[in-house]
């Protein structure tokens, strides 16, 4: 599985299982979820994702390849949503297994940071009154 984009809900347990490994001393699963506020905005009820495929797929695959050369991990699985995602639901899940926790934490952090900065993915914030606005992205939330 390694990495994929989907219109369907992401399943934490499926991603966690896909990285299980006999040699793993750590399995770390990060869920990025929809929250009700962002920089300067409250009352968000959903996010809507636009993804430029296949560019985003290729880019995420490359990020994972590069992280593997830097950090000794066993298995990685990344799922990212497209389309509309409701409050509290996961928008991205990153599962990493490694012999030791330090590698798992570092790899997971690096993967989410690089996806946020590099992948051609955009999200629109949907508010309770039905209006929406493009997110300013990570340039605004540093």
């Amino acid at each position: 599985m390694e990495s994929f984009f989907t219109d369907s809900p992401l399943d934490h347990e499926t991603l966690r299982r896909s990285v299980e490994d006999d040699a793993a001393g750590a399995v770390l699963v990060f869920d990025g979820t929809v929250r009700n506020h962002s920089e300067g905005h409250t009352g968000i009820v959903a996010l809507e994702y636009e993804v430029k495929l296949p560019m985003a797929d290729k880019l995420v695959a490359r990020i994972l390849e590069e992280v593997r050369t830097e950090i000794p991990v066993l298995k990685i699985a990344v799922g990212h949503r497209m389309g509309r995602v409701s409050l509290r639901e996961p928008t991205v899940i990153i599962a990493v297994s490694a012999a030791h926790r330090d590698e798992a934490y570092r790899a997971s952090r690096k993967i989410i940071d690089r996806i946020k900065h590099e992948a051609p993915i955009w999200k629109r914030e949907i508010f309770a009154d039905g209006t929406s606005e493009w997110s300013l992205g990570c340039t605004a939330c540093k």
């Binding site: 430029k52 990212h80 991205v92 996806i115 900065h117 993915i121 955009w122 493009w134």
Partner: peptide, 26 residues
């Protein structure tokens, strides 16, 4: 062709360009 143009690289030939506004994935 699905690759960011590296900054400063000079392109000699070109048919199509995708303009990628600031991204906000994750």
């Amino acid at each position: 062709e699905d690759e960011y143009l590296p900054r400063g690289t000079v392109v000699q030939d070109l048919r199509a360009v995708d303009v990628i506004p600031p991204v906000s994935g994750g």
